[in-house]
């Protein structure tokens, strides 16, 4: 299987005044195409830092990070922006939609930044909103949508550029459990359609949707396991193959 993410010995050091804080102390791992991975860990484990690096929002102090074959560990701001635009679809806990823009425009935004012509942009944005079941809410602004609907808009925005990975940070943290289940079901579907999904969470029942769980503690990988669901998925795949 094709390697999408490959980190080797990632270190992240924060210097605050005289104090040095190692958020990551050497993290090495590989994620393949169409994997469904949950990254877990208590607060202070380096989970967020790792997610920021994986998401190309931040760069490691040392170590190597290859995303889809390109070394992104020492790219500058503008190159990283281009990589984020093309390769990564973010889904945040607080949705992070632009409050003054309607759903369609929010979804269209990554395509604007990649310089796509308007006609194609609108087609793709509508298609993405269809996929998350919001075809009749396109002209609504975030404050006219429910929490679940907002997160669906955010997922549509993450999908629209057909990124290499979808990176979801506590995607159900601000939702009630029923809506949360629906959103997780959506992620499950997206994975079966061929997307690579990385969930960052501290909730076990969310992580159980994934096929593989990587646990971080004190800036290091504590464990890296295949879940029940992952085993089942693999066996089904082997049988169908």
């Amino acid at each position: 299987m094709e390697e999408i993410i490959k980190t080797s010995d990632i270190v992240k050091l924060y210097v605050m005044g005289n104090e040095e804080l190692y958020a990551l102390k050497g993290v090495s791992m590989t994620i393949h195409k169409n994997e469904y991975v949950a990254i877990m860990g208590p607060s202070g484990s380096g989970k967020s830092t790792f997610m920021n690096i994986i998401g190309c929002l931040d760069t490691p102090t040392s170590g190597l990070y290859e995303l889809n074959g390109q070394n992104v560990s020492d790219m500058d701001d503008n190159e990283l922006a281009a990589v984020r635009n093309k390769e990564i679809g973010f889904v945040f806990q607080t949705f992070n939609l632009l409050p003054r823009s309607n759903a369609l425009h929010n979804v269209e935004l990554p395509l604007i930044y990649s310089g796509m012509p308007k006609k194609i942009r609108l087609e793709l944005a509508e298609e993405a909103l269809n996929k998350v079941g919001l075809q009749d809410r396109m002209m609504h602004k975030p404050n006219e949508l429910s929490g679940g609907q907002r997160q669906r808009v955010a997922i549509a925005r993450a999908l629209v550029n057909k990124p290499s990975i979808i990176l979801a940070d506590e995607p159900t943290g601000n939702l009630d459990s029923k809506t949360g289940d629906e959103i997780m079901e959506l992620f499950d579907n997206l994975q079966t359609q061929g997307n690579t999904i990385i969930l960052v969470t501290h909730e076990d029942f969310i992580a159980e949707h994934a096929h593989r769980i990587i646990r971080l503690r004190d800036g290091l990988i504590e464990s890296d396991q295949i879940t029940q669901k992952g085993l089942k998925y693999q066996s089904i795949k082997t049988i169908t193959a």
């Binding site: 503008n78 984020r84 635009n85 992070n96 935004l109 990554p110 930044y113 990649s114």
Partner: peptide
């Protein structure tokens, strides 16, 4: 600031 963060996350360059 938050809006700027969102825009940057989804690919807005500095110049943009």
């Amino acid at each position: 600031t938050k809006e700027i963060g969102i825009r940057k996350a989804i690919g807005a360059k500095r110049s943009t």
